[in-house]
C-alpha cells in the first residue's frame, strides 16, 4: 500500500491539525497521543478542515457550516454534512508519522 511521510512525531502537538498537500489534501490530527488522518476538504461546503476547522476531542467541526465528522473513521456526526470523509490509516515508525493513502 503506498504511503507518504507526513512529519516527525514531535512536529504535531496534541490537539493540532496538519494539512498534507496533494491531489486530495489530507488532514492529519493528533489527539490523546494518537494520529488520525482524513480527507481535508469538507464534503459539504469544500472548506479546508485543517485551516478553518476546530477540533473538539475526536470531532472535527467545519468552520463554514459547523457540520462535524469523527476523525477516527471519517463518519458524519452532525448536519448539514451527509457524506463521510475518507479515512486513512496513520502509523508512527521510529518517530516518523506515515499516512497510507491507498491504491
Amino acid at each position: 500500500m503506498p504511503r507518504i511521510r507526513a512529519c516527525r512525531e514531535d512536529e504535531l502537538s496534541d490537539g493540532g491539525i496538519l494539512r498534507l498537500e496533494g491531489n486530495e489534501p489530507i488532514a492529519l490530527y493528533r489527539v490523546d497521543g494518537g494520529f488520525y488522518a482524513t480527507s481535508d476538504t469538507c464534503t459539504h461546503g469544500q472548506s479546508s478542515l485543517s485551516e478553518e476547522g476546530e477540533l473538539d476531542g475526536f470531532a472535527i467541526e467545519c468552520g463554514w457550516h459547523f457540520g462535524r465528522f469523527d476523525i477516527r473513521t471519517g463518519a458524519v456526526i452532525s448536519s448539514p454534512c451527509i457524506h463521510a470523509l475518507r479515512s486513512y490509516p496513520a502509523v508512527v515508525e521510529n518517530g516518523e508519522v506515515f499516512v497510507d493513502i491507498g491504491g
Partner: peptide, 13 residues
C-alpha cells in the same frame, strides 16, 4: 479569529 464568515440563515460563506 476567522478566515471566513458564514451566514446563519442560508449558509452562504
Amino acid at each position: 479569529t476567522a478566515k471566513s464568515f458564514t451566514c446563519i440563515y442560508h449558509g452562504w460563506s
